[in-house]
Computed example of a mutant assay.
Amino acid sequence: MPLDSTLRLLLLSALWGASFLFMRIVAPELGAFSTAFLRVLLGALGLIVILATIGVRWNFQGKGLTALLIGMVNSGIPFAMFCIAAQYLPAGYSAMFNATTPLLGVMIGAGFFHEAMTRDRLIGVSLGLIGVTVLVQTGPVAMDHQLLIGALACLIAAGCYGLAGFLVRRWVTQRGGLDTRLLAVGSQIGATLLLAPLMLLEAGSRPTLAAWWNADIWWAMLALGLACTSLAYLLYFRLLQDLGPVKPLTVTMLVPPFGVLWGALFLGERVTSAHVSGGLLIALALWIILFKAPQPHLR
């Protein structure tokens, strides 16, 4: 991999790992839906400014509504779910749950999109689920209903990411394609439209609005929306352009270590053997699914 692509990959991993840190800071104060809404709103505004600056033509080729719908699945619901989880789970936990996206993608593909379930994929999914179980049952967070709510929210988010990949292929790629930068900004606008009413309901029901005047919260919010969303999307799509569709998926393995690292450095989150053992099992599962040579399918 060229040095410049390697540096972009590491920066992208650090940014997406940091997103769990910032959600952990903001969501308990502003609320899950308000945090998710502001993230996609800032992400959309940042992308609009960047695309206008570099002179990208706004031609959605009749796929504008499709981009909005994909954004609701690929950004709106997952960001809201991760913000719900951020109210209960350490940032490192959520980052590691996020790594299950390819595992759930394999299961969704086999169940609903006629994708072949190979022996290696089945082994990978099994190892990944064992890794999640190790993290939940032996990690530093007590096993209670709050942990289960947070874990379920993360898995719903990862499942949406997995589903979105198939929707993009069916609704966009197989119908002539679309400039990925337009798809990125269209998806953030779609997510903003989905989350706006939920944000308004949540903001009206919270007992105090003091957090909205907290400068530290807004610095974290700006970092989440502009750096971890706008800039991160541009880095990711540049990697897709330079390296093709497979190698950038390495980011899935690199985000959890960064998520755990930022949580430990800035929030004082404990790192235990459960992080190591569960993380290694998930990493092995991802390697088997993403990079091991394909084998004959089971059906």
Rank of each mutant, 00 (worst) to 15 (best):
D4W: 11
L9H: 04
L11C: 09
L12I: 10
S13W: 07
S19D: 10
M23H: 05
R24M: 03
I25C: 02
I25K: 03
V26H: 00
A27P: 10
F33L: 07
A36L: 10
A44K: 00
A52N: 15
T53D: 11
G55Y: 07
V56P: 07
V56I: 14
R57L: 13
L65P: 05
T66F: 04
I70C: 03
V73F: 02
N74R: 04
S75L: 14
S75T: 13
G76R: 00
I77N: 00
P78I: 02
C83S: 15
I84G: 00
I84T: 08
G92N: 04
Y93I: 09
A95N: 07
F97T: 08
P102M: 01
A110L: 11
G111W: 14
F113D: 02
F113K: 02
H114D: 15
A116F: 09
M117Y: 08
M117G: 05
D120W: 13
L122P: 08
S126M: 11
T133P: 12
G139H: 02
G139S: 09
H145K: 15
I149G: 00
A151F: 07
A153Y: 03
C154N: 09
A157C: 11
C160E: 10
Y161M: 04
Y161P: 00
G176Q: 12
L178C: 09
L183G: 01
V185N: 01
G186A: 10
A191I: 09
L194G: 00
A196N: 11
P197K: 02
P197N: 05
L198I: 07
A210H: 14
W213G: 13
N214Q: 15
W219M: 08
A220E: 05
T229V: 08
T229Y: 01
F237P: 09
F237V: 14
R238K: 14
L239P: 03
G244E: 10
G244P: 09
V251W: 01
V251N: 07
T252Y: 06
T252W: 04
V255K: 00
G259L: 06
L267V: 12
G268T: 12
G268M: 10
E269T: 09
R270Y: 11
V271I: 14
T272A: 02
T272N: 05
H275N: 11
V276S: 04
A283T: 15
L286G: 01
L286H: 04
W287L: 13
K292W: 13
Q295Y: 05
L298W: 12
